[in-house]
Amino acid sequence: MLETTRSRWLHDCLGYAVAAVMVATAIAAIFLLAPTEETMGAAQRIVYIHVSVAWMGLAAFVGMAVTGGMYLFSRELAWDHWSRAALEIGWLCCSLTLATGSLWAHAAWNTWWTWDPRLTTAFVLWAMYSAALVLRSGVEDPHRRARLGAIVAIVGLLDVPLVIMATRWFRGIHPKSPHMEPAMRVVLVISIACFSVFFTMLLLLRRSQLRMAEMLEDLEESGN
């Protein structure tokens, strides 16, 4: 038991260290390696974080729906732990996408918000994530919560392509394929990779917390 706890502790410490190194690498690349853009200046560096968190927000949504579907198929709560962890990390990433998108919009177009297709899609995803969080908070039975959460996640995932299509058919001002110097592209790839590892570590940690909370509840119930 002691060995298992120590091994888990070492495992977690290694995870934190990897996550910290990844964030430090991404920040160093963004501020030291990436050249300063001529028109927007230093504000253009927002894009490296914005694209990274936007990608993670979408990936977490897919992960949430897939693991939700696996729960419906297998009825094992372990899948719901993944789904719930993905929901929470996805919500965080979507919130960061909206915040960094808004900062970018202000720096680039002198407005805090535009009905640009991609920003609108991020907003719709954020609203879906938030509704799923509210739904889960109101259901106490873990299996019922997992079942309802999975349904909303799957319906939401089916909706995403339709949201992208509908918002794209409105004229937007988002740069479709922004011109980037090779050094900028390298930094963008480094940033996406580092933040992906960082948020994956957060996801693993949250999933581990949820699993332990369930084990604790089971122990309490068996004690009573």
């Binding site: 609203a127 879906m128 509704a131 909303v152 939401g156 909706d159 339709l162 299509m165 509908a166 918002t167």
Partner: peptide, 9 residues
């Protein structure tokens, strides 16, 4: 809260 984001398209 659940339906409105879904029916935006």
């Amino acid at each position: 809260l659940l339906v409105l984001p879904m029916v935006i398209p």
